[in-house]
Design a binder for these strands. Structure first.
Lengths: 340, 340
DNA sequence: TTGAATAGTGCAATCGATTGTCTGTATTTT
DNA sequence: AAAATACAGACAATCGATTGCACTATTCAA
């Protein structure tokens, strides 16, 4: 109720005996205002310690200079790197970032959508929760033409722009690398097959095998939630079998880690008896013993690219955007596959 | 300009032939509105796909249900965990979170403050940039009674509430643990001594030495920026000396990692020749070889506690809050100190 | 000299939700 | 039955910045 310490344009106007609209225009460097007035307004603003109220401005202009981000969980390295990339670029372009975590739950994801919409964000960057099957909540944005860009875990059902890494190539590189190391029976621990990224990693793996005329054995391909626990179970299943593989390509580093731990416990030598390749180049993969060969994917780059795309769509008011950007991956060779 | 798809309370009012204020009150479950009307309003709201506009509400009520967070960088595990804690609790209490990264630069930190203030956040949680020497920009909040809570890297100059982990105890536990393992000459690689956390870790270390009547050698105490590179330099300096230490307590895991790498290169056995304790329990420390004994500090808990405190200050309108909460730390024993 | 163009400002409506005050009707009290 | 009270809802101001339009000098061309 009281003015407290909050100075508005009207306080400046009163102090200079001019109107609020003139102050507003002066602060926005509008050409209709004389330089003399502009200077006076700026001085007085500084003198009074004026700080614009974004809320009022946003309400009027119907644009918040804020982008919303929905991610499964921020504490995962790939996502926090992505956020770093998003935040960095957004801020230099004058945008704020509001972050929501879905905790990989569809209902939470739906809540995030509501929250971001209520905040009237100018655009949204999202990576889909692992168990989301229904994408209707995203229509809150698409039906109102609020730009939406997916990254990493994208959704084919919704026609929007996307930024992904080249998972197919990554799967291919991983498998071909193992082949080049002389491995003959290469297993794959794949992720949930309703997510495009895991489908692509598997397909890349399959293509490499076919290219090199290696027989594809169904038994060597397992689908897993890729947790540390399930990785152990997969390792057990694969390595206790009568005819165990001589290499495993795991769809993430966490399950690759499980395999290494299992192999150590059971005196299976890495890479001599079993070569391993992971996916993601998590920070820990470098320090494992043996260190883990893996596919590098830069969260930072993905985040930056997604933001670039989103800001472009926002500022050029592009409708029906459906660009898909595929970022490169890289094989990082380490000890876990270093044989021959 | 056009209505587009955005439904306001007035659209609902018109559809039901009642006034906007009634709709507003009905949606807010105000007791002056009859149940019949409330039900009708809610139904119509759903039918029309009404989504409240937080901007308008915030402008009027002068409260945004948003808290701002300033951190050095989100991609560091401790901070992303803290954010996870903040976000989790804030959201269940109906608050949004806006995150700004200072990149450990004072000027960027100052920008963050402006941005958050312009967004009229209801409160702020901050961890100070490593090179911030002047804290005036924080007065933007304190002078206007906008609740401010620091965590981890706190500032004694500003009288606000704080949440820290027990760095002193951590330093003490680390050093005493090494002493209990029979180490006699325990070095310390400390962090920048203008930051309270590193001062406290050092002091804890000193207290343990004194308690056990171990002579304190100035030469064994080094100040470092605690980067991977400088960790190498410190390791070299300590271990190439005429009379090298038999243990090192590093003020973070990154420099402990450097020491391990240096020791491996130079055929120094860990823990037989040199025992090592780090600080933070970074995700990688478990997987190092040898695995790293370290002090666990939960970023998630710190974030949660800071949020709890902040929300309490906000909702109870507490002025001059100066509570300091110290969270416990825990020694995680692993191979790098496992001797005797 | 006069009409028109231009520059520099002010007025008032507007964005959408909230809220203090007021009105008309229904219910209760004496 | 008259008076008092409660109830349900309407009116209009408000938050602070923006912006279309109107207005007044001043300048310029004819």
């Amino acid at each position: 109720m009281k003015k407290e310490g909050n100075i508005t344009i009207h306080d400046i106007a009163k102090a200079l005996n001019i109107s609020g609209s003139t102050v507003s225009r002066a602060l926005n460097d509008n050409s209709r205002i004389s330089n003399k007035t502009k200077k006076a307004v700026r001085n007085m603003a500084k003198q009074l310690g004026y700080q614009p109220n974004a809320l009022a401005s946003n309400l009027r202009t119907n644009c918040t200079n804020t982008i919303g981000v929905i991610i499964p969980r921020i504490s995962r390295y790939f996502f926090s790197s992505a956020i770093a990339g998003i935040e960095e670029l957004a801020r230099t372009k004058g945008y704020n970032v509001i972050i929501c975590q879905s905790n990989d739950q569809e209902s939470r994801e739906s809540d995030c959508v509501q929250t971001l919409f209520a905040s009237r964000v100018d655009g949204v960057i999202s990576s889909i929760a692992i168990n989301t099957k229904n994408y209707d909540h995203y229509k809150t944005f698409t039906s109102r033409n609020i730009p939406l860009v997916f990254f990493d875990r994208v959704c084919d059902e919704l026609a929007t722009s996307k930024v992904v890494v080249d998972d197919f190539k990554g799967g291919f590189l991983a498998a071909e690398h193992l082949i080049s190391k002389g491995c003959k029976r290469i297993a794959h621990i794949g992720g949930p097959q309703h997510l495009n990224i895991y489908i692509n990693r598997l397909q890349g793996y399959l293509k490499a095998l076919r290219k090199h005329n290696i027989h594809i054995e169904e038994d060597l391909i397992i689908e897993s939630p890729l947790t540390r626990e399930d990785g152990m179970a997969c390792a057990k299943k694969l390595l206790e079998s009568a005819n165990p593989p001589d290499a495993i390509f795991a769809a993430n580093d966490t399950s690759a880690l499980s395999i290494i731990l299992y192999a150590k416990e059971n005196n299976i030598r890495i890479p001599e008896d079993l070569a391993i390749v992971g996916f993601s180049n998590e920070p820990f993969s470098e320090y494992l013993s043996p260190s883990l060969t893996t596919i590098e994917q830069s969260g930072f780059d993905v985040g930056t690219k997604a933001t670039e795309l989103l800001l472009d769509i926002i500022s050029n008011k592009i409708e029906n955007h459906q660009e898909t950007i595929v970022l490169p991956v890289k094989l990082i060779e380490r000890e876990s596959s270093n044989r021959i």
